[in-house]
Design a protein around this nucleic acid. Sequence first.
DNA 1: TTGAAAGCGCTAACAG
DNA 2: CTGTTAGCGCTTTCAA
Lengths: 344, 344
Amino acid sequence: MAEKVTSLKVAERAGVSQSAVSRVFTPGASVSKKTADKVRKAAAELGYRPNVLARAMVSGKSRIIGLVVAYLENYFYPEALEKLSNALQEKGYHVLVFMASQTAGNVDKVVEEILDYQVDGIVMASVAMSSDIAERCQQAGVPVVLFNRYEDREGVAAVTSDNFAGGRKAAEFLLAGGHQRIALIAGWEGASTQRDREAGFRSALSQAGQPVFARGKGEFKAEAARDAARSMFDVPPDQRPDAVFVANDHMAFSVMDVIRFELGLSIPGDVSVVGYDDVPPAAWLAYDLTTLRQRANLMVAETVATLMRLIETPDAAAPRKTALDCPLIVRGSARVPLGWTSEG
Amino acid sequence: MAEKVTSLKVAERAGVSQSAVSRVFTPGASVSKKTADKVRKAAAELGYRPNVLARAMVSGKSRIIGLVVAYLENYFYPEALEKLSNALQEKGYHVLVFMASQTAGNVDKVVEEILDYQVDGIVMASVAMSSDIAERCQQAGVPVVLFNRYEDREGVAAVTSDNFAGGRKAAEFLLAGGHQRIALIAGWEGASTQRDREAGFRSALSQAGQPVFARGKGEFKAEAARDAARSMFDVPPDQRPDAVFVANDHMAFSVMDVIRFELGLSIPGDVSVVGYDDVPPAAWLAYDLTTLRQRANLMVAETVATLMRLIETPDAAAPRKTALDCPLIVRGSARVPLGWTSEG
DNA sequence: TTGAAAGCGCTAACAG
DNA sequence: CTGTTAGCGCTTTCAA
């Protein structure tokens, strides 16, 4: 392997000082065109590129963003990851990925590791944050943005969709469809998204004077949702819900599989199903799932904007919590009330 | 934000030299238990953790692996990414992700950026590698492993499944099922995976004296596959294939949608479908897709092993190309020959 | 086993 | 505008 090409080598070849080389590669530094040309020429000949790590050390800015994810089985996240990585790349940042199982201590450990890399910021997708760790980041001066989760606690920025409103819309749609026995398969109780979706759902239902006919625990996992669906629907017809709101699409698919293929019921003939997220498979015709769309584009854009604001002005006002509107995408998995059209 | 805690601060508090602190945090360095205890105590009190970047600068090892991906819509990759990241994390490495569109120059640019981070190795998933860039990495002394692709060129390590054998199995299964008009929807021609799958498929077919009844271009994209399926199947019954091998699951789903929901044909009654990858949705009952399983676990394990070998012994023998066996998973989307059982 | 000293490759004042 | 001079926080000789 060839010798390492340093700025010093380039400087020698170009006949300038080493700092001149540095300046040429530092946007906004003052260099004469003549020097710049000489340096660029020498750099090109040598194949020189600045060492990002060295730069990070002295400048204190690594241009690395740590990303913690725990849940790539939910296809909302690959999409988000892709968009996030692209958006950050455009701003000259790169993403260091850390997988975290939702285990208690694990996330904390992972965040410590992230901090070791002197990241400029952290995005936590679908993971909860202990206050210990929040403080640790604060004290390290590293801004954190929660993605698709939030903490009630002050001072932690978060970007979500408006899950409460989304839950309401699901219920309203089912109500308008004339359903009488509306059930819910909930996600993992530890998630703010789950809590808000259920709260919104319940609020609309009770406003209409209807109870939640049945409630299953899906934990945001396909397996758990399948079990929940079995005990919810494998019952005599008169005890069976005629509609179910499933707290995310990932679970909704396995719920639909149980309803149609294990129990031989028809969707939406016997049961209407509404999901949440609008991941790509929701649009596949075999599912054709009516669902609340989380707009990954917008959520990512807002996340990046928030992060940049926090990085550039660390002493800014209290970090913002954003909740983006969440359109109902009407497809074929739930009976459509007369005259109702999709919001998407 | 509190002051930065450096090894020097810890040294002062522990009453030892700064290098003593360094040694305590360097596995395998020689320190007395007494010093170690003092240092650890001081470090804990101060919340000290070594700065990975500084360490990387002097040691030349960043413990960062660059990962280039281009294709997260194919759900084989999120799975692989998750497993890869986990496996690497266990070995004390972390993954810096770079999204690359398959555009010609783009990958090269991305790899340059990766190199700027002084990564210890690079994994390229589903992206081709120009020989320019291969040389660049070589000269920078950074080992590269191709994941789910290979280059014919010597000297580039690669991990794939045995796509030729897989293609053969697909054909043999369809043949054994008694199909007379077996078609193919191909992936992107630039990919070695596509070429091998098709070659294997053709080899078994011609060995049985059958032609490829029809061939569509799916490009590994759902949209393209949909169009290909439309023109392949929306024809008079006697010109219609009775079976189709689709070069990956991602495309197979949209092909199935066209066949069943747009054209009202039955699977496997009118048409048998076989895919490739065995991504999670292939097991969802609404698709229940017979497919060749790419064992992400094994592929990732092999990738990590290869990478570690290359990192630890840079002057090792010519990098290895591995092709892992690929079992046929028999489900309901293709007619099952009598007495045939799944390999998975 | 330990401390002192010399950098890793770069940026950021500071004079000139 | 440009060169000189200090480091960034750490590992690693080299003597002691």
